[in-house]
Design a binder for these strands. Structure first.
Length: 471
RNA sequence: GCCGCUUUCGUCUAGUGGCUUAGGACGCUUGGUUCUCAACCAAGAAAUCACGGGUUCGAUUCCCGUAAGCGGCACCA
């Protein structure tokens, strides 16, 4: 059997977004599943809209996600190849120059639309005589190159959808290039997929109506036809195609918020695919082993951020403390804290199971890095107890803390000693004010956990500050 | 408007004619644990399988319509 070759072909006209990544991922998985080749092809034929920084964004994020490509191409570097095939079509009479003005075309389109006909080019320049053509070219009239679309029914087998049929007679002669050195999407794709011997074209469903155009072009050029698989769309909450309207869905944005690459991959693969059993969590390697196009869905899937959070949280819980500390460090630093890694490891151990995304570490654990805490006095009071009770509890804490030796300063020992020595109604009587005094928050890790990380000196200091607040 | 695709709990989905009183996960609710928040455990609510008609002894599963939704209809990709 022929070796599988797939490609991910983004255009660098914007940041890589989640919809793109899902397409990239499925191409990657399908190729790697059969030990095939995964090609990254930058489709930068649109000179105005393509920008190097967007290409960089694509490259960086794919790398970060672990979707490494085996071959890399840039369409802007392949103009001679397109020119060659363009000339071929022109000389064979399968393509022709069109001198129609854009505004005329637009008027035509509007007219067709209002009459309820499918808008398509009528083929005015198809019948230009050689003399007219010569004259127009000599006068350097603005023109484009159109493909003479044969009026026939095009049908193809889609690996996900089965047989799909289109009537090419309805689409009119499409523009395939602005000139010999400026090919357009539908043309460059066909040439490249052939030249790069792509065996499987796996792309979003939004390309399904481009497929017949590309097939006709292949036939005109004498190319072989790759297999097609059109993926269901990734949708926003309103069930329309995921786009800027739904907010910033760039990979970079998710990365900044502290989503892990393995979580993004795991989340995305489950949008339109499943292994057929109840498993939910997969590594990229497992996915490579399990993936198959047969199990890909037909219907679009809504991007559900809550589910991403859950998956991300479960990956965060799998990280070692060392890794997690390193991941969290930049967030605290950009919040203005000086971060010592060994300390951070301890801090992170308290919050590992609470984090849904790395950026949350700042809101959870900032109090470990602050010199002075600030919180309302009333926060120290717990439920039925009074401020006086809180003060009493804290004074007991101060005494107990002061009595402990430095080498006894562990979570277990602290808990044991505090609970044994203090006189209290219920645990909350002591634990709530102590926890608030140490963290300045209504929700946090337990007071003894915090104290063990904070150390004796800082713990006593914060207890005293709380007492003062209550005095 | 035309062409195409799609349709199982709010969401992601299992399900390939009887094993289904339609299963799992996220989210949600309640309880356990508990000083709080998470995590964890347990329980619960949540889908007349879009609708109508066939085929069949029997349809979520097969066929045909209808509806709705979405996608495409560029000198963007």
């Amino acid at each position: 059997m022929k070796k599988v070759r797939t490609r991910f072909a983004p255009s660098p006209t914007g940041a890589l977004h989640m919809g793109n990544v899902r397409a990239a991922l499925f191409n990657y998985l399908f190729a790697k599943h059969t030990e095939g080749t995964f090609v990254l092809r930058i489709e930068d034929t649109d000179k105005e809209r393509s920008k190097p920084e967007w290409e960089q964004d694509i490259v960086d994020n794919l790398t970060w996600l672990g979707l490494e490509w085996d071959e890399f191409y840039r369409q802007s570097e392949r103009t001679e190849i397109y020119a060659k095939y363009l000339t071929q079509l022109l000389t064979q009479g399968k393509a022709y120059y069109c001198f129609c003005k854009e505004e005329d075309l637009e008027a035509q389109r509007q007219d067709q639309l209002s009459r309820g006909v499918a808008p398509s080019y009528k083929g005015t320049c198809r019948t230009l005589t050689p003399k007219e053509l010569e004259k127009n070219l000599q006068e350097k009239k603005p023109c484009v190159i159109r493909f003479l679309v044969p009026a026939k029914i095009v049908s193809f087998h889609d690996l996900i959808r089965g047989q799909v049929k289109f009537d090419a007679g309805l689409m009119g002669d499409i523009v395939i290039a602005k000139d010999l050195t400026t090919p357009l999407y539908n043309f460059s794709v066909v040439v490249d997929d052939f030249e790069m011997t792509i065996t499987h074209v796996i792309r979003g469903e939004d390309h399904i109506s481009n497929t017949p155009k590309q097939i006709l072009l292949q036939e005109a050029l004498g190319f072989t036809r790759p297999a097609y698989a059109h993926l269901p769309l990734v949708l926003g909450g309103d069930r329309t195609k995921l786009s800027k309207r739904h907010g910033d869905n760039s990979v970079t944005q998710f990365r900044i918020q502290g989503y892990l690459p393995e979580a993004i991959v795991n989340f995305l693969v489950l949008l339109g695919w499943n292994p057929g059993d109840n498993r939910e969590l997969f590594t990229l390697e497992e996915l490579v082993k399990e993936f198959s196009l047969e199990r890909v869905h037909k219907g679009g899937a809504v991007f559900n951020p809550k589910r991403l959070d859950w998956i991300n949280g479960s990956y965060i819980r799998k990280k070692s403390l060392k890794e997690l500390a390193e991941f969290c460090k930049p967030y605290l630093e950009s919040a203005g804290f000086d971060v010592d890694l060994p300390l951070l490891e301890k801090v992170v151990s308290l919050y590992q199971e609470r984090l849904k995304k790395l950026s949350e570490i700042v809101g959870f654990a900032d109090f470990f890095f602050k010199d002075k805490l600030s919180y309302p006095k009333d926060m120290l009071r717990w439920k039925k107890y009074t401020e006086k009770d809180a003060k009493d509890a804290l004074e007991q804490c101060e005494n107990i803390a002061a009595s402990l030796k430095a080498d006894e300063w562990t979570k277990e020992k602290l808990e044991q000693v505090f609970l044994a020595k203090a006189t209290m109604g219920d645990r909350g009587y002591l634990l709530w004010p102590l926890r608030v005094a140490l963290s300045g928050k209504e929700a946090s890790a337990g007071p003894f956990e915090i104290a063990s990380v904070l150390g004796k000196e800082k713990t006593v200091e914060r207890i005293q500050e709380a007492i003062q607040l209550l005095s």
